[in-house]
Design a binder for these strands. Structure first.
Length: 686
DNA sequence: TCAAGCGTAAACATTC
DNA sequence: AGAATGTTTACGCTTG
């Protein structure tokens, strides 16, 4: 279960060595920390004699934990584990841990650190242990003559033979010990969190924070307060995430001249996830930014839950000192903010790790040979098929990164991972063996909508699929060419460049695919889509005879009965599958169709049946000569004429192009058409 | 190897 | 006249 990076293991190893031979003095604790945190020293200057005296009281308590650690080390040596790597399988560790947990004796920070670094305790065990230690130390502190300034009067308490100075010093030492242990615990927990070994639920208070705050004494709180009020950085623009971390660390170095960065094992993360303060940030002060305060912005106090309006900085400071003074409420709010920040950091760390894994994964795939079973295909065009649509939405496409990741240089092409691969081998297209297209669902695009909006990554969909999607997303299921353009540029950052190329491709696809139906009205023309035809995936053949016609007889009959066309009552619903399919069928026979919307909205079923009935009648006359290919149309025709794309006729289907235009109003069969005029609107039309 | 699908470019026509 | 739009063809690439 436990996982460690090699560097972290190394750190642990050094800690073990320090712990095994080191003493228990706090000064050495500082030395130990120095090994981990680059010269961090105890903040409080405590006399060696006082410290030794204080430590004497805990010597007994140390023995258990120390023996356990030594025992563990001996076991490692005996077992030949020269590597500092911890052996998770050592069963002996469990017994000492439990003993240590059961033993109500105070453990020094060194030992606590060793325990933490050994990672033999679960977070819950650590919590219990720390609380135990905390209680014990507080008891010892209370037993001592209380400091008038800090501790409540306890007249009944025995007065040990200590001077006030000694007592105060000892209290301070205890507090330092406590805080150091808390910090160590927090480091350990943070490390666990960043390794993914510990998760803190949103509603669960962060383990280290609670005892940390509980262990605070007014001096620490005061220092915390000072740190908060003196934190002048550019966090307004970079986020306030670190301030709370500072709060936690300043509790340790209560009187340190400069803020102590969050002490973490610098090797705990391999992804650069640690957010360690830079000295520059800590060097900022009020003097450098006299009117800048992380809790003040836009004339409003930014204390959580406050939002009091402060006209100027001075009034803000007054407000801050009056309303947010050091009290229980402010302290509690600090604790809450700590937890908020820690949760955010945890989430950020997880997301970064996820991003790293994604990048690593995609990079590996991008470097794989082309024969890879699932090649990186972000730049490819995929004709979506059943196999694609049945796949998990997350798998198509592979979202390589967040838009913020510098993976899509603007100066280069649309490739995400390997731009060179695209330019050298050309676009990688994947095609599915399925005969028919399966339209992309809105979810396919929506899943990665934000990504494609921001990243210049070519969507792995064909132009036809995207055009169809654009049309279907529109309220009227119809778009002008320009609106299609706009949809592309709006939805995909990739299509904000090289407009001439992809716009031409769109036009080509609109003309080439049977599923796209061009419709004219008095305002111009727009495009609709016939979804059924789209699924068939048929193209308008280029000078080549069509080889697939699902209903040859029907098409042929339509071709030979152009009078039927006038029955096509057009409206905005003509884009529905059946209607469009009929139009497409007629288009296959090169029968341009002009109908009007003024004729009402016949149901498609009735429309189809009417046509079928007409077809059953099988009128033999072919009246291509009656067609009017001229653009002249009656006013009613101009409302919603449908212009079905003509198509080169197959030699076997017609001897010549049937440039047929029939107008319902002018048709001699107009009265006949009215038979369908009052039919109820089919609910399926939309 | 070949056919089909797809993207791209280009030529051309039509419309605004 | 020029841009936008629409159609058609050709070519190269990928895939099955």
């Amino acid at each position: 279960m436990m996982q460690e990076s090699g560097t972290e293991t190394k750190s642990n190893g050094s800690a073990i060595q320090n712990g095994s031979g080191g003493s228990n003095h706090l000064l050495e604790c500082g030395g130990l920390r120095e090994g981990r945190s680059n010269g961090e020293t105890p903040a409080v200057d405590i006399g060696a004699a006082d410290l030794a005296h204080a430590q004497q009281q805990q010597q007994q308590a140390l023995q258990v934990a120390r023996q356990l650690l030594l025992q563990q080390q001996q076991q490692q040596q005996v077992s030949g584990l020269k590597s500092p790597k911890r052996n998770d399988k050592q069963p002996a560790l469990q017994v000492p841990v439990s003993v240590a947990m059961m033993t109500p004796q105070v453990i020094t920070p060194q030992q606590m650190q060793q325990i933490l670094q050994q990672q033999v305790l679960s977070p819950q065990q650590l919590q219990v242990l720390l609380q135990q230690q905390q209680a014990l130390m507080l008891q010892q502190v209370i037993v001592l003559p209380p400091s008038p300034a800090r501790l409540p009067q306890n007249p009944g308490a025995p007065i040990p033979p200590f001077t006030q100075q000694q007592v105060a010093t000892q209290q301070l030492a205890f507090q330092q010990q406590l805080l150091q242990m808390q910090q160590l615990q927090q480091q350990h927990l943070l490390s666990l969190q960043r390794q993914g070994l510990l998760t803190i639920q949103p509603g669960q208070p962060a383990l280290p924070l609670q005892p940390l705050a509980q262990g605070m004494i007014p001096t620490e709180l005061q220092q915390l307060w000072k740190e908060v009020t003196s934190a002048h950085t550019a966090e307004e623009t970079t986020g306030n995430n670190h301030s709370s971390l500072d709060l936690t660390t300043t509790c340790v170095s209560s009187s340190a001249p400069s803020k102590t960065s969050l002490i973490m094992n610098p090797h705990a993360s391999t992804n650069g996830q640690l957010s360690v303060h830079t000295p520059k940030r800590e060097s900022l002060s009020h003097e450098e930014h006299p009117h800048s305060h992380p809790l003040y912005g836009h004339g409003v106090c930014k204390w959580p839950g406050c939002e009091a309006v402060c006209e100027d900085f001075q009034s803000f400071l007054k407000h801050l000192n009056s309303e947010h003074a050091l009290d229980d409420r402010s302290t509690a709010q600090c604790r809450v903010q700590m937890q908020v920040v820690q949760q955010l950091e945890l989430q950020l760390a997880k997301d970064k790790e996820r991003l790293q894994a994604m990048m690593t994964h995609l990079h590996v795939k991008s470097t794989e040979p082309k024969a890879a079973p699932q090649p990186l295909n972000l730049v490819s065009s995929v004709t979506l098929s059943k196999s694609a649509s049945e796949a998990s939405p997350q798998s198509l496409p592979h979202t390589p990164t967040t838009p913020t990741a510098p993976l899509t240089p603007v100066t280069q092409g649309p490739s995400v991972i390997t731009t060179t691969s695209m330019h050298t081998v050309g676009p990688i297209r994947r095609r599915y063996s399925d005969k028919y297209n399966v339209p992309i669902s809105s979810a396919d695009i929506a899943q990665n909508q934000e990504f494609y909006k921001n990243a210049e990554v070519r969507p792995p969909f064909t132009y036809a699929s995207l055009i169809r999607q654009a049309i279907l997303e529109s309220p009227e299921k119809q778009l002008t060419l320009n609106e299609i353009y706009n949809w592309f540029t709006r939805m995909f950052a990739y299509f904000r460049r090289n407009a001439a190329t992809w716009k031409g491709a769109i036009r080509t696809n609109l003309s080439l695919h049977k599923c796209f139906i061009r419709v004219e009205d008095e305002f111009g023309s727009f495009w609709t889509v016939d979804d059924e035809e789209f699924k068939r995936g048929r193209h308008i053949q280029r000078g080549r005879p069509r080889k697939y016609c699902p209903d040859e007889n029907f098409d042929e009959l339509v071709a030979h009965n152009p009078s039927l066309i006038k029955n096509m009552q057009s409206s905005h619903a003509y884009c529905t599958p059946l209607n469009a399919a009929l139009q497409a069928s007629m288009a296959e026979n090169s029968i341009p169709l002009y109908t009007t919307a003024s004729m009402g909205n016949p149901t498609l079923g009735n429309l189809a049946s009417a046509i079928r009935e007409e077809l059953n009648g099988a009128m033999e006359h072919t009246n291509s000569n009656e067609s009017d290919s001229s653009p002249g149309r009656s006013p009613m025709q101009a409302v919603h004429p449908v212009h079905v794309k003509e198509e080169p006729l197959d030699p076997e289907e017609a001897e010549g192009p049937l440039s047929l235009v029939t107008t319902a109003n002018h048709s001699p069969d107009f009265d006949h058409d009215r038979d369908y005029e009052d039919e109820p609107v089919n609910e399926d039309m939309e």
